[in-house]
Nucleic acid binder design. Structure first.
Length: 551
RNA sequence: GGCCCCAUCGUCUAGCCCGGUCUAGGACACCUCCCUUUCACGGAGGUAACAGGGGUUCAAAUCCCCUUGGGGUCACCA
């Protein structure tokens, strides 16, 4: 079996959702490996027992697949995954870690430590008060007689294993950041096995990267300092050293860390601003609402948050890949835009696909500074991609989106109507989702349609004579007389009226019509709108509108 | 606070490594005008940055130092 020249990995902790930062890291790892004909693997870092391992733990895989980021090795999903270097869940690799752990202890490169959490916390606290950084003091535990260690272990005293970090400065070589040297003493004797028997992240990563023959570690910059620990471990275990590249962070526009907390923040602010004391109907329970509101540290589950957002009629910031999907962003656009946060191909090129990224991505052009995630620019990219695609493609992608996220809408509209609506919406859509949100008037019953009483509506309908209302009255018989009900035919019928009565200013007639049938001032082009709505509904709504505004 | 890293338009960035071609380029946003049956799109212009201070040099956005600012990290989380 030939060893691939390049093996990268994406190694998240278990999660049901992939956030954009993770997606960007995965994308770069994928592009780097695939561009070199190498292997991209996925590993689940589930060594924290407190943090779950339920069935939702790999929900994020679907997000990767949706983005088009395929993995050669790792958990199996569809055609992705598999591989001969598993298991790819760290929780299933305990035997392996224990073997290497024993090796280090036997060699005197690691030792059992019996400090309690309380003791450690107290020392940290003291160090903080004294104004200096806390460093673990090995003098006690590292020198325990073997008999004592064995005895304490035998009596079941909780113990961790710590790595005996050699004294001396450590120089990290990084392909993005360059070289950095941590002074001696900066890295203390860190824990490599927890009291529950699980390895810590540091230990598992080092063992797995070696065994899974990872050659390039691309990860977020927050891991930079950890690299020193990993190097210490590699040396202690006699492992080779992969090449490192630490990627700049992606943050909110205000430079704060992007997290699902942001959704909570928006909801909390809304509730407080509106002085609400109870949750909206059909969202979350009063008890849950109270508990959440009372404690700033309580976070709503994603499902609860989106229910509440719907109830409050606020839009939650997109954080996770599936948020963007639900909002109607295209996966290829998200990949494109994500790649632009922290990397650029230069030469004023901004729009590209993943094939291009694969060919051109390199560590030298990765930016060193954190990037603020600009949703507005993403939206603009999405708009360009949508308006640039063939009409049929838009219609079919919008249909799939509707079926997944707007089942109610799809149920109340015929296939033919949908096709017409999607066609009419194509060039005015920035996302796949927009047409479903702005065209709800198509799917409601004629007799429940209500009219907005806004300034613009009144201006269009109730101005000085001849006003919109009188045009509606006049145009009603014209429409009634229409033999054929298509956009083209309707245009042929209405235009002459406008020529005669509004000096060719079609808007004077179109806008009242739009209001009459939609209830508001926004719709697809008027003749399309009428055609899609159909003869009966159109006439019905116009009559009701006249009555409503005449009364 | 210790340690590490970073610093170009409001934002993402090009240029920096290998000083002169930079009067600093592009994109998003913003402003103005045009187009227009609403919304959106589109078209034409425009405003807008080398954090500050010292060096080095004939010449500095580019090299060096300091200051300031920002980020990361200091867990039996990953």
């Amino acid at each position: 079996m030939s060893t691939p020249s390049c093996v990268t990995r994406f190694a998240p902790s278990p999660s049901g959702h992939l956030h954009v930062g993770g997606a960007r890291t995965a994308l770069f790892c994928w592009a780097y490996a695939k561009g070199k004909g190498g292997t991209f693997l996925l590993r689940i870092e589930d060594t924290d027992q407190k943090r779950s391992s339920d069935s939702a733990s790999v929900g994020f895989l679907k997000d990767l697949a949706w983005l088009g980021i395929g993995w050669d090795e790792g958990p199996v999903l569809g055609t992705h995954g598999g591989g001969a270097h598993g298991p790819y869940f760290q929780s299933e690799r305990l035997d392996i870690y224990n073997r290497y752990l024993a090796q280090l202890v036997d060699a005197g490169k690691a030792y059992y430590a019996f400090d309690t959490t309380a003791e450690l916390d107290a020392k940290r606290q003291a160090a903080k008060l004294a104004g200096h950084a806390y460093r673990y003091d090995r003098s006690e535990m590292a020198n325990l007689p073997k008999a004592t260690v064995d005895a304490w272990l035998a009596e079941g005293r909780p113990a961790v294993i710590r790595c005996k970090t050699p004294d001396g400065p450590i120089t990290i070589v990084d392909e993005v950041l360059g070289e950095a040297t941590l002074p001696a003493g900066e890295v203390d004797d860190f824990v490599i096995r927890k009291a529950d028997g699980f390895p810590t992240y540091h230990f598992a990563v080092v063992v797995d990267d070696e065994l899974m023959r990872v050659t390039h570690v691309l990860r977020a910059q927050e891991h930079f300092n950890n690299t020193a620990k990993h190097m210490v471990l590699q040396d202690a275990l006699g492992f080779r050293r992969p090449i490192y590249g630490h990627l700049p962070l992606i943050t909110n526009p205000d430079a704060s860390k992007m997290s699902k907390r942001d959704k909570d923040k928006v909801l909390r602010k809304t509730v407080i601003d509106r002085k609400l004391t109870a949750p909206p109907q059909d969202t979350i329970t009063q008890a849950r609402f109270d508990a959440w509101l009372a404690d700033k540290n309580t976070q709503l589950e994603l499902a609860e948050a989106s229910l509440l957002a719907t109830g409050l009629q606020v839009t939650l910031p997109e954080i996770n890949v599936d948020d963007f999907r639900q909002s109607g962003y295209l996966p290829e656009v998200l990949c494109n835009f994500l790649a632009l946060n922290g990397w650029s191909p230069g030469e004023n090129v901004e729009k590209f696909d993943t094939e291009f990224l694969k060919q051109r991505f390199d560590l030298k052009r990765v930016v060193k500074t954190p990037a603020k995630f600009d949703r507005t620019k993403l939206l603009s990219f999405n708009c360009d991609a949508i308006t640039g695609m063939p009409r049929e493609e838009f219609v079919s992608r919008a249909r799939l989106h509707g079926q997944e996220f707007h089942a109610d809408f799809m149920k109340r509209i015929t296939a033919e109507q949908f096709e017409q609506l999607a066609s009419a919406s194509h060039e005015r859509s920035k996302t796949l989702d927009e047409m479903f949100r702005t065209n709800r008037f198509f799917i409601i019953a004629d007799d429940v349609l209500a009219w907005e009483r806004s300034k613009n509506v009144e201006k269009a309908l109730l101005g000085p004579e001849p006003n919109g209302l009188s045009h509606l009255r006049a145009v009603l018989p014209v429409l009634e007389g229409c033999a054929e009900w298509s956009a083209a035919a309707l245009e042929q019928a209405i235009t002459p009226y406008a020529m005669q009565h509004t000096e060719g200013n079609l808007g004077k007639v179109a806008q009242p019509l739009r209001i009459a049938v939609s209830g508001g001032t926004v719709s697809p082009p008027i003749f399309d709108t009428l055609a899609i709505l159909g003869r009966d509904s159109t006439l019905n709504r116009i009559r009701r509108c006249i009555a409503s505004f005449t009364a």
